[in-house]
Amino acid sequence: MTATPDLAPAARPARPSRRTLGSPLIVGACLVGFVVLVALVSLVWTPMDPVATDAVNRLQPPSSEHWFGTDGLGRDIASQTMAGARVPLLVGAVAVTLSFLLGVPYGILAAMTDRGTGRWLMRWNDIVQAFPPLLLAIILAAVFGGGTATAMVALGVGAAPGVARIVRSGTRQVLSREYALAARAAGRGPLYTAVRHVLPNIRGVLIVQASVGFAIAVLAEAALSFLGLGTPAPTPSWGRMLQESQAFLYVQPLVILWPGLAVAITVFGFNLLGDGLRDRYDPRMEVSR
């Protein structure tokens, strides 16, 4: 072998940088970062005690003392909104984790077993998916009592079938590639293939799904708290703030604005982040790899 021209390095694929300022990824990350930061700060400091009532100063408009005004019980809304970020973020994190713990193995299993079993597993998945998470939350609340834990479980279980579905199709794609076949030819079992080939290659889709799932969980937590199925009083939560301020909608409409805005910003942030991550990770956009 005198000549080795094919040893010249492969030309690096030209990949124009998408990470410019103002891209969904950056904006989304900033919004999410801001919300997380506020939640963390609220653990050590809020302008006032978020749960201290003040019967004299009810329904105050924003002022230098109460930045966002006060609610029907005279509590400081700014402090409540800050502290109210903790519960949705916690519920989101736990629910997404739970849905992944259930959905990822289930989806991989459904893709890797033989056709008949796989289909049967997916029909089960469909049945669970057809069951509204809200209904699940109500049932769980009826049996175990409402609360943050109930909301987490209900949302996590409710989101799991969607995760399983995505994981299954991703896994099938990976299994159809020759490297999965090569692993079999190398004498490697399904567990090895799942951990070494499938998971790393569907990682991108999973990250996107986590981000979008987070947005859905935050919204759903607000809805559950609004219905009184989520976090009980007096722990501050955006959903319950919305519910409580309903009565004063015509007296002091600003009261309802703050928690609503907080939910909107958080959901928007996670959705943008998911979009941005999809641009980066979606295999269909990865042309040059």
Binding site: R177, Y179, A186, H197, N201
Partner: peptide, 20 residues
């Protein structure tokens, strides 16, 4: 058999896991 018989596939792009 896996150690006695080995295979080389057509597409060297598809037969190597891009993340390994």
């Amino acid at each position: 058999l896996r150690s006695a018989v080995q295979i080389v596939f057509q597409d060297p792009m598809g037969s190597l896991d891009p993340r390994m």
